[in-house]
Design a protein around this nucleic acid. Structure first.
Lengths: 214, 214
DNA sequence: TAGATTGTTAATCGATTAACAATC
DNA sequence: TAGATTGTTAATCGATTAACAATC
């Protein structure tokens, strides 16, 4: 409890470090200095060192960082040293896209179930996983030790379903619904607001065009 | 050119303001004070006023903000006063999910074309829009005045396709590939890194659990 | 050992919050 | 007019960058 809180900004950058280190690993690079990494990632070397030192001293003076070691350590920090059971709620296009994407499994996120409000989808399978009815949801979470639920349903249903998830004891919600979820602090919410993202793009395009008009 | 640059943090919050104002509008709310809005959105009233005043004085002392007016004005700032032609590149699950989602159209993002590297998909239609071959891409952008391309292809192809888009004169890329795109500054990139987002969720869950262990 | 590069402290910069005069 | 609430300046807080001693 006495470790200084890690700032959001730092946490937001961790997955990106992890990704670049993974690529270096694939390329067979053995070690890298904060300075070289900073050039690759377009950030300052100072920031890299500061960020990493929030979690410990992973480097060595005069040498830099061992890529494999640092990759593993950041993986541990991100919680990848054990697997995470996940479910998807909402078997629409986006839910199916997530279900069909195999990439998450490689990082240890195991898809255990898919749920949908439409009872007619019951039993239909995606990648061998049957779609279940919502009334099974609460007990399913408990019995299968589900940690994370991806919420790919319209915002009209999102709050209601989120409440069921909370009651079921879910630990994290990956929220794709176009709404913010206000939940007890023991349930972590990570939202992906696609519409917001597109608007940001739109703003930046407009603003660039106005700039260059002058 | 002499307007002070708007900070990223502010830009990142604009779509959220827009969203909340849209909801208030739907609820028939006519006016709102920064203080009331701050309670709804869980931010400080001061921040709301500061953010808005980057773009102009939209409120009125003693009254607050007119919801409809402010919503419209933020819409203009976000570039929603005209429509945007978009294409989707990559007709996989995610590309199809985006194509099938009608919500963007309502904000003026008009899907004009879908492209895929797999020639066998040529002619297959999604919501009435035929999938095209990649070799049509460059000329299609020019002839249909495409502003934005959503890139829903694997990272192995992303850089190569992005280069074609740039040559074609695209203005913005909505990047879903699991890689960063380094492009000329006249092409705006907005990335949605789903894997990074999931890792952040994973981190926050782990970190919360470690906290409460103590 | 000399050179390289970290870990970490100090300086700077920017963003958020607080306060309040202006004004509807 | 009195009350409410903005627009805006000033104060605070936090995050980023710079610098350098420690050390491999």
């Amino acid at each position: 409890m006495e470790d200084r809180e890690i700032s959001r900004a730092v946490i937001g950058r961790l997955p990106r470090y992890y990704r670049y280190l993974g690529e270096l690993l694939d390329e067979g690079v053995e070690r890298i200095s904060s300075s070289d990494l900073s050039k690759k990632m377009h950030v300052t070397a100072s920031q890299i060192r500061q960020d990493l030192n929030n979690f410990g001293g992973f480097g060595q003076q005069g040498y830099g960082y061992n890529v494999k070691y640092l990759h593993t350590e950041i993986g541990k920090i991100l919680g990848l040293s054990h697997t995470h059971n996940i479910i998807i709620i909402g078997a629409g296009n986006l839910g199916q896209a997530l279900a069909n994407y195999g990439g998450f499994e490689k990082s240890g996120f195991i898809l255990k179930g898919i749920f949908d409000v439409n009872p007619r989808l019951e039993g239909v399978t995606i990648r061998g996983i049957p779609i279940r009815r919502m009334d099974e949801l609460r007990s399913f979470i408990r019995h299968h030790e589900i940690e994370i639920a991806a919420l790919t349903i319209p915002k009209s249903k999102a709050v209601e379903v989120a409440d069921i998830l909370v009651e079921g004891g879910i630990q994290g919600i990956w929220n794709f619904a176009h709404t913010d979820l206000i939940l007890p602090e023991n349930v972590i919410v990570e939202s992906v607001h696609l519409a917001d993202s597109l608007l940001k793009l739109s703003y930046n395009i407009s603003s660039y065009n106005h700039e260059s008009e002058k």
